[in-house]
């Protein structure tokens, strides 16, 4: 991100950025950066809190009139961690049963996903171009047979991950985003399928499959779940 500030300012466009990792910005030294302590993935701090987002944006805009840089300003507000709901259990009986399949799990979640889409009037599913049963079949085929092209598989996985987490946000007791992510890895067949798929991808001779297996499928914080953590 900081590199873009250098490139654009050099081409005549004044810039002001947000920094999520202060140490990176201290090295890159872009023209103007507002350091925030928010969770990675939430640069404006709080979803559905317009007043909070506006305060962050104003602080970022205010830097634009300054030329005494490189500027690295610490934003004064923080977002406290979510309430600890350790022990939160999914209120819907979605736990896998013997003989259960990924396709059946996807089918069970569809009604909750539909509720989430209706509530928000939007979805972030839709990068792969596949419907969710087809995305599930692609993952199953990857597990059981030949690996499909890495990008197609990655996009199908991203769509399914968004589908699961959006569905869970519509449960009667949705918990928090943190507990829903724990549910995804602890309790779903899809999470287990990704963990099972990882060694096969990591062992592939195709560098794109290998990158998917070692870098861009299992978050760093969840790799301890792998039989052979990377």
């Amino acid at each position: 991100m900081g590199a873009l500030g250098h490139f654009l300012e050099r081409q005549g466009i004044p810039t002001a950025g947000i920094s999520l990792v202060r140490e990176h910005t201290e090295i890159i030294r872009p023209p103007r950066a507002l350091w925030v302590t928010f969770e990675l993935g939430r640069p404006l701090g709080k979803p559905d809190d317009a007043a909070f987002q506006t305060r962050v944006l104003r602080a970022q805009l205010d830097m634009l009139t300054r030329t005494d840089g490189p500027l690295l300003v610490d934003y004064p507000e923080h977002v406290e961690g979510e309430v600890d709901l350790t022990g939160w259990a999914c209120p819907i009986g979605l736990a896998p049963r013997p003989g259960d399949t990924l396709g059946a799990e996807i089918a069970r979640l569809t009604t909750w996903y539909d509720r989430a889409v209706a509530a928000r009037a939007r979805t972030t599913v839709g990068t792969s171009g596949l419907d969710m049963p087809a995305a599930g079949r692609l993952v199953t085929e990857a597990l059981e047979g030949a690996l499909p092209p890495a990008l197609a598989l990655k996009l199908a996985i991203d769509d399914l991950r968004a589908f699961y987490l959006e569905a869970a946000s519509a449960f009667p007791d949705p918990g928090t985003s943190k507990t829903r992510k724990a549910w995804f890895w602890d309790e779903t067949l899809f999470g287990k399928a990704l963990l099972a798929l990882q060694p096969k991808l990591a062992a592939s001779a195709d560098p794109n499959h290998k990158a998917l297996g070692t870098l861009t499928m299992i978050p760093a914080t969840e790799r301890y779940r792998l039989e052979t953590p990377t």
Partner: peptide, 12 residues
């Protein structure tokens, strides 16, 4: 995190 974006695009 992607759940913030799923909830409200303005957070990203």
């Amino acid at each position: 995190d992607r759940t913030g974006f799923q909830q409200d695009h303005n957070v990203v």
